[in-house]
Computed example of a mutant assay.
Amino acid sequence: MTSRDWQADRRAVFDRDDHACRHCEESGDAADPTALRTYPVGAVPLEGTVHESSLATVCTDCFETLQSASDSPASSAESVSSEALFRLVRETTRVQGGAIADVASFASLATSLPTTLADARAEADAAADSDSTFDAAVDETAAAYRDGRREALLALDVADARLERVRSVDGAAFDADVRSSLSTVTETATDLQSTLREAVARSEIVPVCLERCHGCFEPLEGDACSTCGLEVLETADWRGEEGVAFERLFSSINDSLQGASTTTETLTERTMTLATQLTES
């Protein structure tokens, strides 16, 4: 991620997000135009306009946290005290816990899309103004999907940034037991991030199977979304002779979430071991 000046209707993004950071919920200061920033989540075009569905409002502090993780040299090592490392690991664990909840919420929303749209179609068919009733229901569903996707992706990016801080800690100042525990905590947390991103990626397949963009949820035509410019995700693995194998796709998403749950238990145990070692050192 670079510090590119993302091009979009910033005011519309800020209004949509109630002028508050979508991570820490810090409200922006109307008198300070730099108090809030737009941050891109997920895949975005390398050049040109970025659709608002892929932009989240963040405060300056959260933006700098996100940027510092991507801008810092991979070889840089940070010397910290036992107390500082304890706080850093605890904060990283807290942030990652929030990411787990956001990803699970997004996955739940995504797997409900086929039923939600089918129910909306049935209700609309029974209404006097079928098309407008259905369009209103789709708009509501689209807004919820975009919000859930942004929340999950932003939470994962923040967790990645915190985890990068942990990786940058110079372990030379600690004894062998702490170094070993820190390494296992970092590796397990990294595995958890990968599993959570896998769950999000598979959840994004659901709207594409419904002929909707995985980013903005607008109808798809061609190889790229005409609204937000995202390339259409490949869905061949989830299609069969009878159409989309939603049950198999949903099972795959659930497997990822179950894997994340198992990894979280392991991470909790290893984090507690590290915390004990740090408080005793």
Rank of each mutant, 00 (worst) to 15 (best):
V41P: 06
S112L: 10
R37L: 05
E198Q: 14
V166P: 03
E218T: 13
A173Q: 12
V178D: 02
S53Y: 04
R150E: 08
V166Q: 03
A84D: 13
A99K: 04
F217R: 03
R248H: 11
F14C: 03
E218K: 07
D129Y: 00
T268P: 00
C209R: 03
M272Q: 14
L154S: 03
D102C: 02
E221K: 15
R239V: 13
R90L: 10
P207H: 06
F134D: 00
T263D: 01
T111D: 08
A143T: 12
C213W: 06
F63M: 08
S226N: 10
C228M: 04
E211S: 15
T268I: 09
L66E: 11
S72R: 15
I253D: 07
D170S: 10
R248T: 07
V44S: 02
A176W: 06
E26Y: 05
A8F: 11
S183F: 11
S180G: 12
D147E: 15
F134N: 00
S27N: 07
A74T: 13
R146F: 01
S183H: 14
H19T: 04
D147R: 15
L154G: 01
T116A: 15
A275R: 11
S181T: 08
A152M: 08
T276I: 03
S75A: 15
A189Q: 14
T186F: 01
R270E: 15
C216M: 05
E218L: 02
L46S: 10
Q67G: 02
S130C: 09
R90K: 13
G240H: 09
R167Q: 12
A56S: 15
A275Q: 11
L36M: 03
E151R: 13
D61M: 08
L163H: 15
A126I: 00
D147P: 01
Q7G: 00
E78K: 11
L196R: 01
A245E: 14
P207N: 11
T65M: 10
D255A: 14
L153I: 03
A161R: 01
Q67D: 13
R11I: 07
E269A: 13
S203A: 15
C209F: 00
L154D: 07
S75M: 06
R121W: 07
S81C: 06
E123W: 03
W238H: 14
R167W: 08
G171R: 04
A20L: 07
V80K: 11
Q193V: 12
C228S: 05
R197C: 01
V206P: 05
D170M: 02
E52T: 13
